[in-house]
Nucleic acid binder design. Structure first.
Lengths: 206, 206
DNA sequence: CGACTTTGTGACATTTCGATACAAGCTACA
DNA sequence: TGTAGCTTGTATCGAAATGTCACAAAGTCG
């Protein structure tokens, strides 16, 4: 017990969390390690071992209570509670993100949406008014923004990243196709659906 | 050499591919294992070993030619050439995907876009006309669709998945928040930005 | 030519993962 | 009540993957 939380374990826990959240949406209240395994391609024994390292969350003969397990995993990952994020770009992608609820389900609150296009500034997206990009430093400081999400064209991405770094944001989630240069204490995660798809394709071919 | 291509190696190669594609877009023509390492958090030695298992692609003192390496990795992953995909849902997310070029960069051609909303059917998204969902079986058969991309609300996702499976599609890329049930010979990849973000957050906290 | 960079590769310790096995605990149902 | 059937929690063992150090070979640059 009290195993070390390695990056590998953390990665798997995140994937369990995804399945658990989806299963909850479908009305399920408990789930077995076997069932999680089918959706994640992780060995059931491995799943149980990952979890039992931090406590006894399951009920024998039944499985895991979904609500409890979600709460426990988020506690283990130290990502409980609300996190404020700022979204850059109010185009199709930005609007899709803002209205999807996919972040809200995991404790991320979109606190602000920025754009530079005068036609978009002032418009309503979801329940937020699009702000002008120049308000970035002010908003980050006042609203405790922890994460910047970039849904902007590749050309402008580095500029936004630089400004976010200057404002003290340490986590950037990049949907653009730009390669971002940031100081080493800043974490950049680039979302790359096509690459994931290539991997899925390889996975299928195997 | 001629190492085995394990899933772990394939996953890393996919990530190298992402960085290479981005670097190419930024005008670079060659890159070192050290540089790739900085963007992927993979050990430079590991990168060189992953690559050297399949041939000698680099030049000592210089690094790897980006175009060559992209072609080689795609050959290794057996994902060279064009793959036709069908997109479901012409909402914000669907439009974002269709117009972003993110799939085109990796050899995926969006061959058709479907929706059920009469207001959207017939409209132009990118350079494709949105078709009615009922054309699915016909289009899949005639255009050699290999992958279905689901940008639909969670409620409708399972139905689309079922119809895709019935039409013979074996790879489904799921942007919805539904848990999809499919036969075991079908690969489902669910994109989950919020979960990736949670993992990035944990990564940062470490 | 000489300094410097970077690949390709070997060797080895460490960590991680997969597979198997099984007792203990829970449910369901007769 | 009692028995059959699941599922968890956990141990153990071997196989596989990974990190680290080291270094020769091959290229660039002044």
């Amino acid at each position: 017990m009290a195993d070390q939380l390695t990056l590998g374990v953390a990665a798997r826990l995140s994937r369990y969390l995804q399945v658990l959240t989806q299963a909850k949406k479908m009305g399920k209240t408990s789930i077995s390690s076997q069932a999680i395994s089918e959706y994640t391609n992780v060995n059931p024994t491995q799943i149980r071992r990952d979890l039992s390292g931090f406590g006894k969350f399951g009920k024998r003969g039944v499985g895991y209570d979904i609500d409890t397990l979600i709460a426990q995993i988020r506690k283990i990952l130290r990502t409980s509670g609300q996190h404020n994020i700022a979204l850059f770009g109010a185009g199709n992608l930005g609007q899709a993100i803002a209205t999807s609820g996919v972040f809200a389900d995991h404790g991320f609150r979109i606190s602000a949406i920025f754009d530079v296009d005068p036609d978009k500034v002032g418009q309503l997206v979801g329940d937020l008014v699009v702000r002008h990009y120049s308000e970035l430093p002010h908003v980050v400081a006042n609203e405790g923004i922890m994460v910047g999400v970039l849904a902007v064209p590749g050309k402008g991405a580095q500029q936004v990243a630089d400004d976010l770094v200057a404002a003290g944001v340490k986590i950037i989630f990049n949907y653009s196709d730009a390669l971002l240069s940031v100081p080493s204490d800043v974490t950049v995660h680039t979302s790359s659906p096509a690459v994931e798809l290539l991997y899925a394709l390889y996975f299928y071919l195997t």
